[in-house]
Design a protein around this nucleic acid. Structure first.
Lengths: 348, 348
DNA sequence: CTGCAAGGGTGAAACGTTTAAGTAGACGGC
DNA sequence: GCCGTCTACTTAAACGTTTCACCCTTGCAG
C-alpha cells in the first residue's frame, strides 16, 4: 500500500478501476459518465467521477477498448515493395496525405504497413490481426498476391492508385484514359498536328490506358495513328531523352511531344535544349503528374496533374463507409486530373 | 438468398480457443507451440496444433496480445500542424521513410499521429493511451506545448529534426552549425571572398545555428563579418529573389551567395538569370537541403544535403533502445550533412 | 398495503491473449 | 515401496475496458 504511494514519478497510468475506487463508485458508473450516458447517473456522481479522472490523470486505455469493442478505429496504409520507401516518388506521400487527412477528420488513425516481396507471407499476418479495421492498398504491383488475397478476406479493403484493370475490389483511381484524351485534344487545339508521344511501359495498365486516350483523340482529329509517333519508355528521364531524339529523327516535322510522365518530360526538354532545339518554340512538351520540379524548370512545364491527395481521401471515405455501414462500394471511382498550363507548350 | 451466400465468407477470425478445441489440447499448449517454447510439448502435439492453425486459418489477435503484454510494438510518428500535410515539404516524408525503415526492420509498426494546434488538448489523448510504446516528435514548432508535456511523461519520447536548443529530451538533429561551417569553408576554398548569405528567419534556432557556422568560417578566413553580407529571409523562393538582388546591389563585387535552403537558392538563381547575370560564371550559388528539384534545374544546384532519412532511422533507434532496455539516450545526436557538388559554384 | 415503474447504480461476463502455478504420470534411485 | 524429478500438459488469473442483466430505493397509483 505504501509502495503505491511511494512511486510518484514512474507510476503506471491509472486504470478505470483506480478512478472508481477514488470516486467511490463502481467501474461501470465511471464508464457511463465517461461516455455521457446521461440517464445513468446524477450530476453529483458525474462531478465526483470527473474530479477523480482529473486528479489521477486518467486516460482510457485504447487497447482494452479495442479488444472489447472489436474495432480499433485504425486504418492500414498498405504499400508494397519495391515502392517501399515512401519518398522515392512523392506519389505515395501525396496519397498518404489525403488518406490521412480524411481519416483523421472522421476520427480514425493510420498505421503504415509495408510489405517486402520476400517476407510477404510473414508480414501478411499484420494485415488481418485485428489491429486495423480496414486496409487501403496503394499502387499495388500488377501481379501482387495481395490482390487475390484481398478479394477473399473478411476485412474491408480498397485499392487505390494504378489499379490493374481486372480487379474485383472497391477501387479508386486516376482516369488515365480521360486525362490523356483531354491532354491530346487540348494540344491539338493549340494547333499541333505532328505530335509524338513517349509512353510508359505498355505492359502496365496505366500506360496502356493513357495510350488509348491519346489514340482516341488522334483518331477524332484525323491524325496518324501509326507507331511512328510512339516511343515506348519506362517513365524515366533517361527514356525521355532518347525518346525525344528518336521521335524527332523519325519525324522531322514534329512540333509537340506528349510525355507519359513529368520525369520523361524533363528528360525530353534537357535533350532537346542540349541540341539547341528550343522548347516550346520549336517543339512543345507536355507532361503528366505535376511533380514539384515542374514549376522550377525553364520553361515551366505544362502538365496534367493527378489528384493524388483526392484519391487518398476518396479511398479513406470508401473504406470508412464500408466499415461503418457495411456497404461495400462497387463502382470504379475514377478521378479526373487537372491540366496545369504553364510555358512548355506553344500555341501555333 | 444472396445474403445467405455472403455470410460464410464473413465469418469471424478463429480464436486460439477454437484452435485448442480443434486440436484437442488446451489454450496454453497452443500458445506455447506458437511461441516455440519447445520444451513444453512433444513433436506430435505440435503437429496437431499447427494442423489446426492451418485448417482454421488462425491468426493471433494482436490487440489481445498487446493488452496482456502491455506493449504494442508500435511507435508513433508525431507531427504537429502547421506541417500537417506530410507532403508539403518532402522533409517530413524523408524523415518518415527512415523512421519507418528502421522500425519495420526490428519488428515495430508505425502509427501516424497528427496534431492540430487547436485540438491539441483533445488529440493529446492519443499520445499516451497505451496504443504506442514510444513517440518521436518530428520538427515540432519552437513553442510547442508538446515539448514540455513530453519531458514529464512516462512514455519514451525522442525529438527529431529542427529541435529547439534548450530541450531536455533525447534528440537527434542535423548539425546545422557544422554543415554551414563546412559549406562556407569550402566555398572560401574555391577562391571566393565576397560572399553573401540569405538566411532563414533568425528567430528560428536552425537558422541561427547556420549563421553561427558561417560566421565562424568567415572569421577564420578573415572575411568581413558585418551584416552587409547578410539578408534575412524566410526560406521561401521569393526571399531568395529579393535577397540575391539586394545583396548584389549592396555589394557589387559579390561573387557567391550561400542560401539558407534550396528554395531560396532557386529563387536567387531565377532572379539573377532574369537580370542576365550568369550562374555560376558571375555569381556562384550554394543551397541547403538537396531537394529533388536541385538536380533538375540549370545549372544543377550545389548544395548541402541533410541526412533526413538517417535522422529518421536514428530517432527510431534511440526510441527502441529506450523502450527495450530502459536506457534513455542523453546525448544530442548531431548528424552531419553531405556537400553535393554540382554546377552552381565556380572555382575562381 | 401492495404492485410497479422509474431512477440510479452495481456485478460480472466478455473480448483473446500470455503466463505463473499447478498436476498427473512415468521413471529412476535407494 | 517411497521419494523426488522430469516431462508434457492444464487451469486460471491477469490485462483494462464495455455492456448487459440485475438490484435496491423511492414515489405513486390502485
Amino acid at each position: 500500500m505504501t509502495e503505491m504511494l511511494n512511486q510518484p514519478a514512474r507510476r503506471n497510468n491509472p486504470t478505470i478501476r483506480e478512478v472508481a475506487l477514488f470516486a467511490d463508485v463502481s467501474i461501470a458508473t465511471v464508464s457511463n459518465v465517461l461516455h455521457g450516458k446521461d440517464t445513468l447517473y446524477t450530476a453529483l456522481t458525474a462531478e465526483r467521477v470527473r474530479g477523480a479522472v482529473r486528479e489521477l490523470g486518467y486516460r482510457p486505455n485504447s487497447v482494452a477498448r479495442s479488444l472489447v469493442g472489436q474495432r480499433t478505429k485504425t486504418l492500414g496504409f498498405v504499400v508494397e515493395q519495391p515502392h517501399g520507401r515512401l519518398t522515392r516518388n512523392s506519389y505515395m506521400s501525396q496519397l498518404l496525405d489525403g488518406y490521412l487527412e480524411f481519416s483523421v477528420r472522421v476520427g480514425y488513425q493510420i498505421k503504415i504497413i509495408t510489405l517486402t516481396n520476400s517476407s510477404c507471407e510473414i508480414n501478411r499476418q499484420q494485415l488481418d490481426d485485428g489491429s486495423v479495421d480496414g486496409l487501403a492498398l496503394f499502387a499495388p504491383p500488377q501481379d501482387s498476391p495481395l490482390l487475390t488475397w484481398a478479394s477473399s478476406t473478411r476485412i474491408p479493403v480498397v485499392v487505390a492508385g494504378s489499379v490493374p484493370q481486372p480487379c474485383a475490389l472497391p477501387q479508386v483511381d486516376f482516369d488515365d484514359e480521360g486525362a490523356a484524351y483531354r491532354v491530346a485534344t487540348w494540344i491539338i487545339g493549340q494547333g499541333h498536328c505532328s505530335i509524338g508521344r513517349i509512353t510508359g511501359l505498355l505492359s502496365q495498365w496505366s500506360a496502356r490506358r493513357r495510350e488509348r486516350g491519346i489514340l482516341r483523340a488522334f483518331q477524332e482529329a484525323g491524325l496518324d495513328l501509326s507507331d511512328t509517333w510512339r516511343y515506348e519508355g519506362d517513365y524515366s528521364s533517361c527514356c525521355g531523352e532518347t525518346g525525344a531524339i528518336s521521335l524527332l529523327e523519325a519525324n522531322p516535322d514534329l512540333t509537340a511531344i506528349i510525355c507519359g510522365n513529368d520525369r520523361a518530360a524533363l528528360g525530353a526538354i534537357t535533350a532537346l535544349q542540349q541540341r539547341g532545339i528550343s522548347v516550346p518554340d520549336t517543339v512543345s512538351i507536355v507532361g503528366f503528374d505535376d511533380m514539384d520540379t515542374a514549376q522550377w524548370i525553364n520553361p515551366k512545364l505544362t502538365t496534367m496533374r493527378q489528384p493524388m491527395s483526392e484519391m487518398g481521401m476518396k479511398a479513406a471515405e470508401i473504406l470508412i463507409r464500408h466499415i461503418e455501414t457495411g456497404i461495400r462500394d462497387e463502382a470504379a471511382n475514377l478521378l479526373s486530373g487537372e491540366l496545369i498550363i504553364r510555358q512548355s507548350v506553344r500555341n501555333r
